[in-house]
């Protein structure tokens, strides 16, 4: 059972600021959704390998070569706030 405090903790991990109303909605909906998914727990999967990749591909590498950098004007073109060559953010703490 997911509690409102769990939702608050998860929201902080996910960097989402939720209103009280949202917290209540998500608490209810996450419980509904995960409750509906409980059927999974009935399946016996002790000896089943988890599948992280559907492909049977291994060892995909690139050679250690330097290629074209993004032109400076493009690097910061989409930036909401900048200071000359850098991205600018509010204070860290």
């Amino acid at each position: 059972m997911i509690k409102k405090s769990d939702v608050e903790h998860v929201a902080l991990l996910a960097r989402l600021e939720l209103t009280d109303n949202e917290k209540e909605i998500y608490t209810r909906q996450l419980n509904d959704i995960l409750g509906h998914f409980e059927s999974l727990q009935e399946l016996e999967t002790t000896n089943v390998e988890p599948m992280a990749h559907v492909l049977s591909l291994f060892n995909v590498f690139r050679e250690d070569k330097v290629d074209r950098h993004l032109p400076s004007e493009n690097v910061l073109a989409n930036c909401p706030d900048r200071d000359e060559d850098c991205f600018r953010v509010p204070k860290i703490v």
Partner: peptide, 30 residues
């Protein structure tokens, strides 16, 4: 494939991948 060299003007040794732009993918340097 951006350069690793130390120093340099800020944000010049970057490409869409190391800037984490939407849609980019990593490929491992052997």
């Amino acid at each position: 494939s951006s350069s690793t060299s130390f120093g340099g003007k800020p944000n010049t040794h970057v490409c869409p991948v190391c800037l984490g732009l939407p849609g980019v993918l990593p490929v491992v340097n052997k």
